[in-house]
Structures are given as structure tokens and as C-alpha cells.
Computed example of a mutant assay.
Amino acid sequence: MTTQQQVNQAQYQNKSEAYLNSQVHAQGIEFEKMQNLIQQHQFKRVLDLGCGGGHVTYQIAAFTEQVIAYDITPEMVNLVTTQSQQKGFDHVIGQVGAAEQLDFPVEHFDCVISRYSAHHWQSITQAIHEIYRVLRADGKVILFDIIGNSNPILDTFIQTIETIRDPSHVRNYSLAEWVKIVEQAGFKVETIEKQSLQLNFQSWVERMQTPVESIHTIRYLQSKAADQVRQYYQIQQDGTFTSEAVYLVLSKT
């Protein structure tokens, strides 16, 4: 039986360099917000959950005493630890594991950050409860991810093309879903900030090594989409489109 976690591992083999060099992943106004929050609260021990190419780790490492770069894909973890050593961040530790089962003691981290990872998790509810468990009482969680939509027409479109591009995609949760999930786990939502994210179509599919037939299917769906969908996602002639992302800061209640 193939699990979602195995699908994730298979999808992200041989893609670590693509994510390291991805401009979408390497840039973002959210990095400065993360740095400011860490400095403001003097957080020392931080978990980069679903570290991917390691961009969160590289951005925050200078402001912490320890960063755990954690990902389900060994290749990603190896990349981040190697890059961190080259950048002089000897306090970055790599660890392989799933978000749903964090191998850390209770209240181990001052801060947990997850960026562009949650939409791959096998069980969002279990993962959020694990984050709650390993976060200290006065710690913070920062979540950043592309979000879905409460309008079924808009939501079905984005979930469909995401899955065709990347079979490891589980769900882009809507803002309402996010709030419900984290509050049920015991978190208080302190900050909600939306961002628009333009995704260059060619880079988007190349990064995931999407097969040609799947690319054609996505372009077909884009061409047949209702005006409401085309306008909302700002679909361009070359397939480039805009998604919404959300920056959340959580604390324990």
C-alpha cells in the first residue's frame, strides 16, 4: 500500500536543486516578518518544518542558536545541511521525518515555521496537533502557504491543476479551513495576512518535472475555464497565473 508520504518522497527525489534555485521559493516579503518575530521574542530553537530547499533556514539561521531543518525527503535535508555548512551556519541540524510524527520532546521549540509545505501533509489535523505538542507555552508558529477558496468553482480549479502538476499535492486549504483547523488544535490566530503570488507557468511545471501530457491537460483546463476563474487567477496567454497565499502567526491559548 502506497502512503501519501511515500508519494511525497518519490515526487521530490532529484528536485532539491530546482527548489534551491527557485525564485518563488527564494524570495518573499514573509522572510523579513519571520526574522522580525524571531528577534522580537529572542527565539533560540526553531523548527523549519518541511524545509524543502532550505530558504527559511537560510533566512533565519543568523538570528537563532539552533535550527532543525526537517523534511520527509532525505535529499532535501542533505541539501539544506550542506548549504548551511557552506554559509557558515554550523548550528543547523538536518532531520528526516513526517510532519504528522515529530520526533521531539514536548515543548521543545521556541518557534515552528512551515512555508509551502502544509499542502503536502497526509493529515493536516495530526500535523497541527504535533506542532502544538512540541511548541513551548509562550512560543509562536508561523505558517505560510498557498490557499484554496471557499467558492467551489474557484477551489476545484486550483486543486485540480495542482494535483495534475504534482501528484503529491493534497490540498490548498482555504483561510476558513485553516482557522478552524488551528483553533480546534488549541491555537490562537494572532496574524492573518494575504499575499498574491504570480506563478510563471514554465518554471512552475519545470520545477516539478511535470510530464508533457499533464502540461497539456492543465493548459486545456485553463483554456476552458469560466471567465470568473480566468479573471480571479489572472490566467495569462502563456499559462502564468496568480494564486493567493496566507501568512499566519499562531500562539497557544
Rank of each mutant, 00 (worst) to 15 (best):
H25F: 14
H25G: 11
A26C: 00
Q27W: 13
Q27C: 11
G28R: 13
G28N: 12
I29E: 14
I29P: 12
I29H: 10
E30G: 12
K33Q: 15
K33C: 14
K33W: 13
M34V: 12
L37P: 02
L37D: 06
Q39P: 11
Q39V: 04
Q40H: 12
Q40G: 01
H41R: 14
H41C: 09
H41E: 04
Q42Y: 08
Q42V: 01
F43Q: 08
F43R: 02
K44Y: 03
K44I: 07
R45E: 12
R45S: 14
R45G: 13
V46A: 10
V46W: 04
V46Y: 05
D48V: 00
D48R: 00
D48K: 03
D48P: 01
D48E: 08
L49S: 12
L49K: 05
G50S: 03
C51F: 09
G52R: 00
G52F: 05
V56G: 09
T57K: 03
T57E: 10
Y58F: 05
Y58L: 11
I60L: 10
I60A: 14
A61H: 10
A62Q: 15
F63C: 10
T64M: 10
E65G: 13
Q66G: 09
Q66D: 11
I68G: 09
I68R: 01
A69Q: 12
D71W: 12
D71H: 14
I72D: 06
T73C: 01
P74Q: 06
P74T: 08
M76S: 06
M76Q: 07
N78Q: 10
L79E: 02
V80R: 02
T81G: 04
T81V: 12
T82R: 02
T82S: 08
Q83N: 12
S84Y: 07
S84Q: 15
Q85M: 07
Q85W: 00
K87I: 01
G88K: 07
G88F: 06
G88E: 04
D90I: 06
H91Q: 11
V92G: 00
V92F: 01
I93H: 10
I93N: 14
V96P: 02
V96M: 07
V96W: 09
G97M: 09
G97S: 10
A99L: 02
E100P: 08
Q101E: 11
L102N: 03
L102W: 06
L102H: 05
F104W: 07
P105E: 11
E107T: 00
E107D: 09
E107Y: 00
H108W: 04
C111G: 05
V112I: 10
S114M: 09
S114L: 05
